[in-house]
Design a protein around this nucleic acid. Structure first.
Lengths: 249, 249
DNA sequence: CGCTAGCTTGAAACCGGTCAACTTTTGTGG
DNA sequence: CCACAAAAGTTGACCGGTTTCAAGCTAGCG
């Protein structure tokens, strides 16, 4: 079973400048800004381990695996999900580059869900005990961890509300867009790296409903979808639809 | 506007034994176990501020209020919720004695939702900057904070899945039961401190549906409800129903 | 080429929501 | 303590958004 353990990335060496160790990691920027001295930053650097690539369909961790590390997505998309007794899949989230997986495993010391690569995925792995220990010496890092955890509570709360299919779908598209934009990608044209079924299981819909909502949104000129490619053509209207879901974001 | 700020509890003095400052607070036990010396425990103690009582219907904080503190419920029940554009209320959670509110406010430095007392509520308030600072000197406390945050991600994820009314209701009752049991109350007989409408808005149902599910559960012998009093009569069956929701708990 | 997984579309069924009427409880003031 | 009003809860009938079922389509790939 593959997991977030030892598997160095071929071709990505850790030997370079210690202060550019991982441009996409959620920790680097925050900690660089905090003006720590070189020795502490070096401590952070030696914690990082680049692992992957995981290819499409490969599991990064599975429900019940012992928790040892959190990981920032460096490239690709990760889906987390659980499967219930009836075999229905419940998608908990999609993680894009720069986002951190595994935070919900801390409380149980086990991963409570499965994580699978939706395309080619490379991760930055952080041993949790080590980064927690370092955080006691770097208040900025501790603060960053608190923030990330708190953020995930908010994320999980978002779609738990009582919203219509249209509202949830609009919110899904808008948040995807914002997250891509935050990473320097186009906010209005991007690739859906997940299947319709994945989207459905995330939004608590049937995949047929996802198809139909896409079609209706397209007929109404709000989006243009062609297979996995999507273009947001009327952001304003989408934001309006998503408004109820996204308030407090 | 009332908020989690200065309002000492009349009759509850902070002058007593520093190591029994708050029997219900989520931090005390963990930190006592960690074997810290007296001076650090005293630091933790002076952070605690008992506030309240808030009486039924009174707000503890409101959406958008600047975040300064987290708080452990000492007695009573707190409901957190947001209201959307159409005036629909979305209940995010109920907090029983021993549970901590405000953790989802860290990332934004503002409370993302409203918190209201469902009955008479007393809180232990912890200034967040102070407790975070202290956590750098008490790794056990830091760990406890990480755990609490991580736990809340899991809680928020639970009901976000695609479950039937029956499954969600059963899960709601079972978790309530477990939480009361963990605090030394009866797991099979307790008071629903929230209205049917609150339950409905939490479970994404109509209040009429809550009524009907209660009635059906009762007709099937799983529970006995009389107004706000409830008794779980067939725990096993409820657990079975809740199973899908609660896996990974 | 043909297979398969993913996707789309239509028709019918159903779960839960909405609307409305009514009952019960709670709270208030005389 | 009672009268009354307001809030909470219950129940029934109907409606509608989503799901389910079924069929067919499309793209990607061996």
């Amino acid at each position: 079973m593959s997991d977030v353990s030892r598997r160095p990335v071929p071709g990505i060496a850790d030997d370079g400048d210690a202060f550019h160790f991982c441009s996409t990691c959620a920790f680097s920027a925050a900690c660089l800004e905090s003006g720590y001295d070189k020795s502490l930053l070096r401590d952070l650097h030696v914690l990082v381990e680049h692992i992957g690539p995981f290819h499409e369909g490969e599991h990064i961790f599975r429900e019940g695996d012992p928790f040892t590390a959190i990981a920032a997505v460096r490239s690709g998309t990760v889906k987390t999900y659980v499967t219930d007794h009836e075999g229905r899949e419940h998608v908990q989230g999609f993680f894009l580059p720069g986002e951190v997986i595994g935070l919900n495993a801390i409380s149980q010391a086990r991963y409570p869900s499965n994580a699978i690569a939706l395309d080619s995925v490379v991760l930055c792995r952080f041993s949790f005990p080590n980064i927690a220990a370092l955080a006691t010496r770097m208040p900025g890092l501790q603060q960053q961890l608190f923030k990330l955890l708190s953020l995930d509570i908010g994320k999980a709360t978002l779609l738990s509300g009582n919203f219509s299919a249209d509202e949830r779908m609009a919110a899904f598209l808008i948040t995807l867009s914002r997250r891509y934009a935050a990473r320097g990608f186009s906010p209005n044209r991007f690739l859906l790296t997940m299947t319709r079924t994945d989207i459905a299981n995330y939004l608590r819909l049937a995949s047929e409903t996802v198809s139909r909502v896409f079609r209706r949104f397209q007929d109404e000129g709000m989006i243009q979808v062609e297979r996995r490619e999507i273009e947001l053509k009327d952001r304003k209207q989408l934001e309006t639809l998503a408004e109820n879901v996204l308030r407090s974001t």
